[in-house]
Design a protein around this nucleic acid. Structure first.
Lengths: 239, 239
DNA sequence: TAGTGGTCTAGACCACTCA
DNA sequence: GAGTGGTCTAGACCACTAG
């Protein structure tokens, strides 16, 4: 005959564990507080460490936890609202949000070259910048500016700020923007203080002037700590 | 003395594995093609199955692979561009994108009630809808409409379409929108044909009319198959 | 040097799909 | 019923942080 029914719907352990921990986080822990270490937690819940880690992985993905090797696991603060703009007011140098790190002049990766129309292999200024907010680096950017978009810039040894300034001469009429999930490449991970492969939100923007694409930026935001905000009118409401 | 230097930078196995698989995906596999099963792949690369799975997990997160229990792992098509709008042209019923599933009249969750200003516990029409694109359900929505926003709707037994239609009477003047990473709740997962906990992009929109919040929607998009697109002018460029 | 999270192994069993 | 991906275990060692 067997058990009549309703044996519980076979919810995976790590899923149930996540709920329990999530509730505990709400009621028993303050932001910044350190959790017991993984071995202890696993023992306390009577599961293998790998199973516990599955639950912690999810909570970290949702921005509830923050883990640092050699240190421990802490309760994360609410995500930071990061204005990504939406209206005409946004261009690559809006409000000095981005701090230049480096520049180079090279051919763009295939996917970018296609957007820029530089498939022929024309050289592109590749500006690397970072964006901080709340005392933390929240995003790493690669800004691709074809040489033809900034005729005022010449020579090989160019400052990042110079390229950006020259780019500002354009009437940035419109822009297309996409947001998707990605995982941090080694280089970005280093700048975001995360491990390679960490989940990130990738914002790709194509800046156009009179129908022509004058620049493309690929912005990599920490997905654990950031909430991208858009708004319709002038008043940017961050959170 | 030890080995001089350059012992390879201690790149984790699964990370290297991911690169190798990623390259193979580009050069040797067509979209939709089935990969060897996990046990075979692990053996072929000389790693434990768990390690191989770490690499596959990442590739799936990036939308390169699609895995289905009982079936196998296939090469995923490029992500679908899903217009999420940006300009004034967007309101909850734009272009009949959303198909109603159900409605109920209840108190909103705390976080939503705060945005709506219904902290007192006023009843809110909760409309559940789904959005399809390319023959696939790409998003599940919860649309919260306070009873006061749709005075034309009365009684307990209300059709979802009715609520949405009445809501359309408002001048949706502006809207704030946020995008963040989340994991699919059981209910959403079912509708998106994913497992609970699958990574999703959560788009939260607050619709306002003359400064007052008249509705809030929480849209849960599949992160593996979707690329959210925004644009500045009338012409929505999807991809 | 002690303690933390990150990686890795070699197994086992389960839930699901499909012929 | 055979084959797939999903869950889980009980270990081990490594990389990193901090006292």
């Amino acid at each position: 005959m067997g058990t009549t029914q309703l044996d519980a719907v076979q919810e995976p352990k790590y899923w149930h564990l996540k709920s329990v921990l999530s509730d505990a986080l709400d009621s028993e822990f303050a932001v910044g507080e350190i959790l017991p270490n993984e071995r202890d937690l696993a023992a306390r819940f009577g599961v293998a460490r790998a199973t516990l880690r599955q639950a912690l992985d999810q909570l970290e993905l949702e921005g509830r936890l923050q883990r640092r090797r050699g240190v421990g696991t802490t309760v994360a603060p609410p995500r930071i609202g990061v204005p990504v703009g939406s209206g005409q007011h946004t261009w690559p140098d809006e409000q000095e949000l981005w701090e230049p790190v480096s520049v180079s002049l090279e051919s763009a990766p295939a996917a970018i070259a296609r957007m820029l129309g530089t498939d022929g292999g024309e050289k592109v200024h590749t500006v690397r910048r970072i964006r901080a907010r709340g005392g933390q680096t929240v995003a790493a950017q690669l800004l691709y500016v074809p040489a033809r978009s900034v005729p005022g810039v010449d020579g090989d040894d160019v400052a990042a700020a110079r390229v950006v300034r020259e780019l500002g001469r354009h009437d940035m009429a419109g822009q297309d923007r996409t947001v998707e999930l990605g995982s941090a490449r080694a280089e970005d991970a280093r700048e975001l203080d995360r491990l390679p492969g960490a989940p990130v939100l990738v914002v790709t923007t194509r800046y156009t002037d009179a129908g022509r694409t004058v620049a493309v930026s690929v912005d990599t935001y920490r997905a654990d700590t950031c909430r991208l905000t858009f708004s319709d009118d002038g008043s940017l409401l961050a959170g």
